[in-house]
Nucleic acid binder design. Structure first.
Lengths: 241, 241
DNA sequence: TGTTGACTCTTACGTTACGTCAGCCTTTAC
DNA sequence: GTAAAGGCTGACGTAACGTAAGAGTCAACA
């Protein structure tokens, strides 16, 4: 079968088949002397597999790994993919809620304040406030809160940005450069808000996994983020002392 | 304020500010003679607006329209954006369901056959089996089934591919070249499985709309597909006789 | 005042999964 | 034989930045 036929049968475009060929994802079984791609029935089956995983939201790179590596742990891949999809859905739900709010409240008008506007996105509640009070005293915490208030949603935005960044690198080694850079940002952020010794910082990390109120809130940004942060923070403390 | 400060306050990267500047989305109020970007408080407010809409999933292009055009209908934009998000969520839900199925059924192991894997997507059950039995007798049908079994999921995959292809062209005229080619594939497919006279083929098309069990199953691939197929099959029969 | 370190600037390529020409060759049908 | 249909290889475009690279600027310290 030549490209167009395969395209018609599978519902993908000819360009897509070219693309998959380029990527080495689906090489036609044969090539005529004129350079025409000729696909076999096996090729068709492969293509179906590809489309299956694609429909599940896997990237072509991932699909290539999955299919080319017979020993690849498909279950693991599926589970992690599932988690990703759940995260995406939560993000979407947040967006939808916020957009509903906006439509309802302001009818799309600009009258909303920044803080209101950003309410839906971050988790503004400080999940570790009580612990912080116990640990570092009311004074420090109040000051921190004042600072947070002062800048309104800006600091929270930043905090979220750091969390997101951390979530992105959480599959790397905690002592990797990337991870340490990100956790360093976190340390700096905390210190723009209050004052944290490097030991307190490390201790904070422990709390992230010890107390599930932390864990749940942090893991909203990515499953396993809390424990990753603990490891990275510990490493950071050891390394920068 | 210079870039880094704004970046720190807002949680976006310096590069992002550069980018928004390039796009004309957020031009700094001032530029020093050395070319340094200097942002005003107004700029900050603009940035917050930008981030707000960005968080709602708007593209930068859309955001530019919304913000630069004071008369732009924000409400309308919000509503249409909301609809988009809902669609995306449904897609995600589909993916999640399918992935759950896959994990549950096969535990992700490689022992899964292709048929199992695709079970979530296609309607493997032959929706017209009883009708076929009535019309062409048990013998022919059994033979067809045997053939289907013989080739395993491949034939079903092929069938789905053809359905999908048909769904894609179902908005065209039934006698258009594209449509006729696709319906020709369908005819050929049926004949690789059993033997269908051109009249039987045309009759089959009638059944697609006459019996709602057909209609529902076929229309799973696209609303209106069944009736489109009937028209195309009729045309095909007339043309190829 | 020289130097250093922190900041900033402007290119410019990399990323994802193809869409969309453009220019040119091959095969098929009349 | 010619034209239509199909195929091939570049190569640029898309969205929203990330990530250097190479180079200039600014403030502070020696």
């Amino acid at each position: 079968m030549k490209v167009k036929e395969v395209a018609a049968l599978s519902g993908v475009s000819v360009r897509t088949l070219h693309h998959y060929d380029e990527l080495g994802l689906l090489k036609p079984a044969e090539t005529t002397e004129a350079g025409y791609r000729v696909y076999s029935d096996e090729n068709l089956a492969e293509l179906q597999q590809i489309l299956f995983y694609r429909a599940l939201g896997f990237s072509l790179k991932q699909i290539k790994e999955i299919l080319s590596n017979p020993s690849f742990n498909r279950l693991e891949a599926l589970v992690s993919q599932q988690q990703m999809l759940h995260q995406k859905r939560e993000q979407l739900d947040d967006m939808i809620r916020t957009i509903e709010q906006t439509i309802k409240e302001g009818k799309g008008e600009v009258t909303m304040t920044r803080e209101e506007r950003f309410k839906g996105f971050d988790f503004s509640e400080n999940p570790y406030e009580q612990e912080a009070r116990d640990r570092w005293g009311d004074e420090a915490v109040d000051e921190t809160n004042k600072k947070l208030q002062q800048f309104g949603g800006k600091q929270q935005e930043k905090m979220n940005a750091i969390y997101r960044r951390l979530a992105e690198v959480r599959h790397l080694q905690p002592d990797s450069e990337e991870a340490q850079k990100a956790i360093g940002d976190w340390y700096q952020f905390l210190n723009t808000i209050g004052t944290y010794s490097i030991e307190a910082f490390s201790g904070l990390g422990e709390m992230y996994v010890a107390d599930e109120r932390f864990t749940t809130n942090i893991d909203k940004f990515g499953i396993g983020l809390a424990s990753f942060m603990r490891d990275a923070m510990k490493e950071y403390a050891q390394h920068n002392n």
